[in-house]
């Protein structure tokens, strides 16, 4: 699998992502500066976390208009895979590659903590190394992770099976107390209609080694590496 990581000014989680990808693929990912416009040859494009362009105007709004985004759209149109984590998820919604938007956390607090995620389906290239219904731990760190979409969009996401992960209790219950940022229907991550674009707020790349305190995030990257092995 050939993976690339997009770097906008203000992105700061690209190295964590590179470590996770290299661990699972055995190859160092290509680092892609935001002015680059050629992404041919890549199987997976990752937009990592951070604060692109200072998150001015709205989180992800500036990055969604940057030169590399046209190439990312073309990659998506070719059927390429895209993973957006945290700011990357915000950028994908601002760019219209995923529906909805990320609002300020309902508590108004920046949340830096672990959360528990339930795998809503395991028959995707991203989740194939998890079991459906499995619960795993993931770090998260964001001020604007409160997923919002209108009811019709939420119903469509649920009906088409495009909810990837939900915030749950460690026992797997969808409960208000597990929904730290106030997301609609506890949604932590969603897929595009073709299941090739995944956006999520938590950081599975930060839990891929016992030295990090666990390996709960590792199956996501191992699964991708297996699915996209060429």
């Amino acid at each position: 699998m050939k993976a690339g990581i997009v770097i906008f000014p203000g992105i700061n989680r690209e190295r964590d992502m590179a470590i996770a990808l290299e661990r699972s693929t055995g190859q160092r990912p290509r680092m892609i500066w935001h002015r680059e416009t050629d992404l041919t040859g890549l199987d997976l494009v990752v937009i990592p976390g951070g604060f692109s362009y200072g998150d001015y105007l709205r989180c992800g709004a500036m990055a969604a208009q940057s030169p590399v985004m046209a190439a990312i759209r073309a990659h998506a149109a070719r059927g390429g895979h895209i993973l957006g984590v945290c700011n990357g998820f915000q950028i994908l919604t601002e760019a219209g590659l995923l529906p909805g938007a990320l609002l300020r956390n309902a508590s108004l607090r920046f949340l830096s903590m672990d959360c528990w995620l339930r795998v809503e389906r395991a028959d995707t290239d991203f989740a194939r190394h998890y079991r459906r219904g499995a619960v795993f731990r993931s770090p998260m760190a964001h001020g604007d992770g409160n997923y919002f979409a209108d009811d019709a969009t939420l119903d469509r996401l649920e009906g088409e099976g495009l909810v990837a992960f939900r915030y749950v209790t460690p026992e797997g219950e969808v409960a208000p107390e597990a929904n730290h940022n106030g997301s609609a229907r506890n949604i932590a991550g969603i897929y595009s209609a073709d299941l090739r674009v995944l956006g999520l707020m938590p950081h599975p790349e930060d839990l891929v080694d016992p030295l990090m305190g666990g390996t709960d995030g590792r199956p996501l990257f191992d699964g991708l590496a297996a699915a996209l092995a060429a």
């Binding site: 105007l57 709205r58 709004a61 919604t93 529906p99 909805g100 609002l103 979409a149 209108d150």
Partner: peptide, 8 residues
């Protein structure tokens, strides 16, 4: 196109 996000 930029100043407002019409989703929200």
């Amino acid at each position: 196109r930029l100043l407002a996000n019409l989703v929200i």
